Every structure is written in structure tokens, then in C-alpha cells.
Amino acid sequence: MNIIITGASSGIGFETALELSLHTGNKIVAIARSANKLRKLLEIAKGINPDCTILPVEFDLVNDDYNVLVPFLKERLGTVDILINNAGALINKPFLETTEQDLGEMLQTNVVSHFKMIKHILPLMQAGSHVVNVGSMGGFQGSVKFPGLAAYSASKAALHILTECLALELAETGIKFNCLALGSAQTEMLETAFPGYQSPVLAFEMGKYIADFAKTGHKFFNGKVLPVAVTTP
């Protein structure tokens, strides 16, 4: 399978890329802003499976030029079977201290970057391909909400609705769109949101779940926002 995953340099994205690299038949483009962390990913993946194919790509989803990225992807992959939009950021700040710039940053990173990625990658996908957006329980309607996360949660809610809209509008293409609204997993982002909280779910466990869902979930779901959480938070 030809797979693209964003936000692959740390946390859940890192672990998902590692899990996918265990299968020698997968060709994985791992995208992130940190070249050093991507090199570490490649080093660890090769240590586990010397025959794996991971192509590290240093790219800023918000600011860099997609007209440079897409020709590279066409050349190295040709077609894309799975796109995992995992990149994201979090601001933890009381609402009255949250600025419009903070909200704009959350929307750019957590929604607009994925919007742009999907738009540019869709021409490389075909019937049976799967787009997986990584959302959050913070943006899941009816879930428990927490102070300080208004901008982050609002941006994730927007990503959830975008997923539903694309599944409907592009149904005739045969490309499936789903979103996993993740609960807590032990990552740096969780520590930022809930300092001192220990999640019962480890990052590698969540990474394995996302990898498995990306490969098979489109056979059972389309246009769904699926909560993946065992605790609150």
C-alpha cells in the first residue's frame, strides 16, 4: 500500500508510522516539520524492519508550497491508497486570554492544513482509497468539555464536520472518508492539555489502532466520526 501520514515526527503519528512500517509491502511517506525527528523515525523503523520503505519529508503543512510536494509524491508513489491527516497542535489557555490569533492558529493547523492536503492528494487516489482524519473527543458533540481548550476543541469539531461533508460530496469517487475522535493517549500533547494526567492508553497502542483502522476501516465505515476513548479525558 502507498500511504501518506502527516505529523509523523512524534506521538501518535510517529507510532502509527512505525506500525505501518512493519509490513514490507507498505510504502510510507512520513511528513513533519522536524527533519531530525523524521530521521529518528527512519532509524528506528529500519532497526525493526530493515526492508521497510519510509520516505521522510520535511514539510510545513500550513506555510510550505504544495506545488512542490505533489510532484514529489506523484514521482515516488504514483497513487495513494491511504492518507492519514494526523498533524495537529494544541493551545491550552483560558478563553478570556485566548486571542483571535490563537483561534486562527488552531484552525490553520487542525483544519485548513488537512483541507489543503486532501485537495492536493485526491487526484492521486482512486475508488477504495481511504482518508483518515485524526480528530479529538474535545471536538465530539456531547462529550465532556474542559476549560482552556475552546480554540482547540472548536478546530477539531470543524475537522469532524469536514469529514462528513467530503464523504457525502465525493461518494461517487469510491474514496472513503472517516475521522477518529481520539480520547487520551500518553503523548506530549496530552501533557499540554492535562498536566500530570496519566492516560491508560499508550501512544504505541493508539498508533496500532489507527494503522489497523486506516487499512480496514473503510470497508465498514464512511463519513463517520468515531469516538476512540476509554476515559474522560
Rank of each mutant, 00 (worst) to 15 (best):
E172L: 14
V134D: 01
L168D: 14
S155A: 15
G135Y: 09
G142M: 09
K156G: 04
M137N: 00
A158W: 06
K145N: 07
H120E: 15
H160V: 01
L159W: 02
L159R: 01
A158Y: 02
H160Y: 00
G142E: 09
K176N: 14
G174N: 11
S143I: 05
S153Y: 04
G142K: 10
G174I: 08
T173E: 08
V134Q: 05
L168R: 13
L122G: 10
G142R: 09
L168I: 13
A171D: 13
K145Q: 12
L122V: 15
V134A: 04
L124E: 13
K156Y: 09
H160R: 00
P123K: 13
T163P: 06
Q141E: 15
Y152D: 06
K156E: 08
L170S: 03
L170N: 07
A167P: 02
T163L: 08
N133H: 02
Y152A: 11
L170M: 09
S153F: 03
I161C: 00
Y152I: 10
S129T: 05
G135L: 11
H120N: 15
A150S: 15
T163V: 07
T163W: 06
K119F: 05
I121G: 07
L159Q: 00
F140Y: 13
K119P: 06
A127E: 12
F146R: 07
S129Q: 05
A158T: 00
Y152Q: 10
A151D: 07
E172V: 15
L149A: 05
N133I: 04
A154G: 12
P123V: 12
E169Y: 00
G128E: 03
K145C: 07
P123C: 13
L168V: 14
V131S: 01
V132Q: 02
T173Q: 10
Q141L: 15
S143E: 10
G128H: 01
H160F: 01
K176H: 15
L159T: 04
G148D: 04
G138M: 04
C165R: 11
I161G: 00
S155Y: 12
I175N: 04
P147T: 08
G135S: 12
T163E: 08
G128V: 00
Q126M: 09
M125H: 11
F140Q: 02
G148I: 02
L122N: 12
S155C: 13
